[in-house]
């Protein structure tokens, strides 16, 4: 019984590595992401950018050997802050992407397997409700409601972002559930839980991987907007807060903060977008088979 399922589980992955090895843009993108990840890791381990908070330098200094990109309004090293923000971006991006994707997979899988029943209707209704709430209002409200809870912003993002993955997984599971091997498993008496976890969800991993990268990007971009609007809640500095600071500075002609944050963020987001595309092309079962 599981042998059949195993064949279907492994079949779509044939040739994936082959496709990836021919995708130059995807490889470069993966490399760039890796570089950023190492930067983030280094920051969290204290290897570099530990002077991001220091305000001992004069304000608005031009780029120099001491401060690679100059200093901001209160004398902080822009380059150190930009590097530190990489860690912030990764911590927000990873946590949101992981949890939202898993949540989406779980609820989408349950809904798909229970297609047509009240459980399915309930989850679809929930997804609709969450999609209808204006995101910024939701974040603001949640931040207010959970005032002393850390990671409020991440929680708000997770609650809103899982629906996209949820819908896609649900659609895919509905398709998969109609295949014969699921009917066979049911007849033999495999519990629904096991069908979902061992036979169906593994067949959605291509979908989940791509969605996770897309969610990562969405989380970073959302953080920028939220920080800009003053609704962001996170410790330390982020690209969003640097850009928010810079709006006042630009009026006085100081672009260092803005360019540093925008540039680094653009690099990471671009790399992730290209990577998401490469993964999509490599993992799409239709193209592989």
């Amino acid at each position: 019984m599981d042998a059949v399922a195993d064949i279907i589980v492994t079949a779509p992955r044939r040739g994936v590595l082959g496709k990836l090895s021919r995708d130059r843009a995807g490889q470069i993108a993966a490399l760039v992401v890796l570089v950023y990840a190492i930067i983030a890791l280094g920051v969290s381990l204290g290897w570099w950018a530990d002077g991001w908070r220091a305000t001992d330098a004069p304000q608005w200094e031009a780029p120099s050997s001491a401060h690679l990109l100059g200093t901001n309004r209160i004398g902080q090293d822009i380059w150190a802050r930009a590097l530190y923000s990489t860690k912030t971006a990764f911590s927000i991006g990873l946590s949101v992407a992981l949890v939202a994707t898993l949540l989406g997979a779980l609820l989408g899988g349950i809904a798909g397997l229970a297609h047509g029943s009240w459980m399915d209707e309930l989850i679809v209704w929930l997804m609709g409700v969450l999609d209808s709430i204006p995101f910024y209002l939701f974040v603001a409200g949640l931040a207010f409601a959970l005032q002393n809870v850390p990671y409020v912003m991440q929680i708000a993002m997770i609650v809103v972002f899982w629906t996209t993955t949820g819908r896609l997984v649900r659609a895919e599971v509905i398709k998969l559930a109609s295949l014969d091997f699921v009917a066979a498993a049911r007849v033999i008496g495999v519990p629904e839980r096991r069908i979902l976890s061992r036979h169906i969800l593994p067949n959605t991993t291509h979908l989940l991987l791509v969605q996770a990268t897309i969610t990562f990007v969405a989380a970073i971009k959302a953080e920028v907007i939220l920080s800009f609007l003053g609704l962001g809640t996170h410790e330390g500095v982020s690209w969003g807060s640097m850009i928010a600071e810079s709006t006042a500075e630009i009026a006085a002609g100081h672009f260092g903060n803005f360019i540093a944050a925008s540039g680094l963020m653009f690099g990471l987001v671009l790399a992730f977008n290209v990577l998401a595309d490469a993964l999509q092309d490599a993992l799409d079962p239709r193209l592989v088979a």
């Binding site: 971009k221 907007i225 850009i243 630009i250 803005f258 925008s262 671009l270």
Partner: peptide
């Protein structure tokens, strides 16, 4: 398109 998608709305507005 990919490049455009990688620019935050905030950045675009300010720029």
């Amino acid at each position: 398109c990919v490049a455009g998608m990688s620019v935050s709305f905030v950045i675009a507005i300010i720029a």
